[in-house]
Structures are given as C-alpha cells and as structure tokens.
Design a protein around this nucleic acid. Structure first.
Lengths: 226, 226
DNA sequence: CGCTTAATTGATCAGGGTCAATCGTGGTGG
DNA sequence: CCACCACGATTGACCCTGATCAATTAAGCG
C-alpha cells in the first residue's frame, strides 16, 4: 500500500492453477483438506496485508516469505523447501508476503477447513501447534543470526543450514539469487558475493558455479558460524 | 556448557520461592494449574539447555530471554512484562535462558498439567496456540528490526514498542540497562547511549534520568522507526 | 549473436565498534 | 551527614567492517 515499488499486486494472490484432491501423503489427516497448487518462478503466493485464510506445504521448489519496508528495502524472513509448512499468521491479515523463489508445487490448506478438522481429530490441533512452534524457533534463530554476527559468520551459518536440509550434504544448489541471500542475512549483494569469494580463497567452499556451492571444509565453516 | 563466563548455573533454575494456588485471574481456565513464584533482580529463571517443563506468565516486573554465543556475546530475544507469557519452547530442551531484569512475580505453569487440561477444555488448547503464534510474530518482528536498520531506527522502534505497552504512553521507565538494550538491538552500550543523546539533541526524547525517558515527539520517532 | 540480468571485483566512504577517560548516581560505612 | 566507592552511563578519538558507487565479467535467452 505505502510503496509503489514494493508489494506488486495488493491482493492478487493465489492465481496459481489449482488441482483439487491432493493424492500426497494419504496418511496425513490433513490431506483431505488440501489442494495442490502450482506457481511459476517469481509469482506472489500471498501478499502482506492480504487475507489470512490459508497456509501451505511445499511439495517441490522453494518459497520465500518477506516484509517490505517503506523505503523499498526488503527483509526475507525465511526460505521454505520440500516438506516445510509456511503461511501461519496471527490475526486476519498477513504480516508477510510469500513468493515463489523457483517454480514450485504446494499443497494449500484452508484454515477454516483445517480448524473444523482439528475439532474432530486431536492430532491435527497438536500438529498445528508444532508447526507454529517450529516457525517461532526458526524466527528466533534468524534473529540470533542477524543480531551480532559478521558477514562471514552469517554466510557460513546460512550455507550450513542449507546443507543439513539438502539431500547431498556437500553440494548445495542455491535456488535463490545473491539479492535474496543478502535480504535474508541483512547484507548487500556485493558483500555476499565478496564473502563467497573469500570463503573460496580460504578453501572452505568451492563455487562450482554461481548457484552451486560445494563445501570443502564443513568443520571450518561450523567453527566460523560458531 | 561451552562457556565459563556465560550461563552461570547449568540447571539451577526455579530456585524462587513458590506459593501454591494462585488467586490471580480466577476466570482463566489455566489458573488452577499455576503457582506463583518470585524472583529477585538478576536471578536466572531457567537455563538454555535445561529441562523444558514449564512456562510462565508475568504478574509484575520484567523478564528477558536470551541466548549466549560461544564467544560470550549475548543476544536478548525479548523482554516480557506484565501479562505476557514466555518460556514456550519446542522439544524437551530449552533453546533460551530467562532471567529477571527486575525483581518480579510470575505464575508458573507445568506443561504436563496444562496439556492435561487442554484435553478436557478446548479453549486451553486454542489459548496455547495463540501464545505460540504471538511468540512467533514477535520473533519475526524482532528479526525485521535487526536486519537492515540503523542504530537510530532500532532505538526509536524499541522506545515506541515500550511506549505502547506502557501505562503512561509518554513517560517510559526503562527496567533494563543499556547493555540489555544493546544486546536486544544488536548494538553496543556506547552506540545505544550515543543514540539516546542524539535523539535528545534532536528534540525527539528527553532523558529525565538514565532510566526514565520522556517522548517529546512521538510522530518524529514513528517516522524514524519507519 | 546481441541483449538483458546476475554476479564479481575494485575504490571509496560512513556507521558503528573498540578503546579509553570521565561523569553521575546510589549505596555503604565512618 | 558526608566521604568514599562501585557501577552504570556518557563522551571522545580512532579504526574497521560492510555499504555505496562504479566498472567489468559471466550467464541465460530470444
């Protein structure tokens, strides 16, 4: 609202193609309430200030959630990849926007439907509680990272986080741009780039390509990230 | 564990005097499960790594939750004052420590008891969920504050936060030291102090005393905090 | 094969950290 | 009651990390 350059389409979210009745994880009690949705790279999934009536689980691809400041600066709150849930928010208005970092497939759950479910099935309510707590823990760790750490420490911690949730714990495919990484870590693209280069010079990582990082010395990275 | 100077007593928490059967807010379904506890200034309420079996509501005084880095640096995650709930954590181990900023009175709830209650009373479960969501939102806003903002913006936002939860929205009594504020905002004591002085020179605030701030121009502060 | 956008690298600058001295205040004991 | 002490807060001088401005290189893509 406040800014022309930011938040592109006020409430024009959920324009992804929907396919009803997900056939994913049939054992999950939530599965009946979800519908599969698909978003192309860069598409907004929901907007800050928009209606808070759904949440999502990532099936494939990567999603970012972020806030925009009135001067155009952007803070990325988190990246979500396969199996993770996002879009929990207190109140009726979205505090964050969500966008597809890469082309991605999600399962969308209607809050109202899920809350109905939770009435009948205790485990659903407990699961929602766990999701909320996970989001809280993640946000707290993010705040810790942003608080009092240098550029190298931030980047090292970021890479290690990606590594541990990656299939191959050594080779990390970065779905996001340097700008995304910067906005997540509170750094500029230049500093992110320079830090990558420095870590490579120090033999800790190898930049196979701009978007593919190989960890050469994870222990040294751990030490850096502290 | 990792650091001698930090985390003073590993698991020596909850040494406050307990008084059973709180007579506070009798309409709250939780009240039966809570006991009143009292902590002197500076006392540890629970420790990072300790057992996660209770949570707390502040009756009076101020509490801080924080993490310690291996090099002794400290990040304060949040301050809690009257009416606020803290000590929610995922898993069986505490991710954070909690300490009394000032002498304070709390109500302590045993997780196990509360979860029993939640089985019988739907509203308890929903209330717990709301607490978790509030903690999440708070952590996200904190991360936003730490991400890409200058010292003046941080301090202004901090003061406005305190103001809106203070009885007198103009005169703010700071329960915490400059060190606490610095560790919360990711700044040094010197920078916090300098920023206060600068804001006073700019006519936005008045430092009645080191621990009592009067807002002279809240609008200008709002603009700064953006 | 250009065109566009992302990424890297360099040079310079400023905000905030660090080190150090001083001030102020509250508490204690003579 | 006042002198002293201890600790928090303030202020100053200087330095360093990361931001900014600018140019170049690399990589997709029509």
């Amino acid at each position: 609202m406040a800014h022309p350059a930011t938040s592109p389409s006020p409430a024009a979210a959920l324009t992804g193609r929907m396919v009803w009745m997900a056939s994913l994880s049939p054992r999950e009690p939530l599965h009946a309430a979800g519908s599969v949705v698909h978003f192309p790279e860069g598409r907004e999934i929901f907007a800050q200030g928009g209606e808070n009536d759904m949440f999502f689980k990532v099936v494939s691809g990567v999603v970012r959630t972020c806030k925009f400041l009135n001067d155009g600066r952007r803070q990325i709150e988190a990246f979500y990849s396969e199996g993770e849930v996002f879009g929990f928010d207190l109140g009726s208005e979205r505090q964050l926007s969500a966008e597809a970092v890469s082309e991605c497939t999600l399962v969308a759950y209607r809050r109202a439907s899920v809350e109905m479910l939770a009435q009948k099935d205790m485990t659903v309510g407990r699961q929602l509680f766990r999701y909320a707590m996970q989001a809280m823990t993640r946000a707290q760790e993010h705040a810790l990272l942003l608080g009092r750490r240098g550029a190298a420490e931030k980047v090292a911690a970021f890479l290690l986080n990606l590594a541990e949730q990656s299939a191959d714990h050594r080779n990390i495919a970065l779905a996001m741009t340097r700008q995304d990484i910067g906005d997540f870590l509170g750094l500029t693209i230049e500093t992110v780039s320079r830090t990558f280069s420095q870590l490579e010079r120090d033999g800790m990582i190898e930049l196979v390509s701009a978007r593919l990082v190989r960890l050469r010395n994870p222990n040294a990275l751990e030490e850096l990230a502290a």
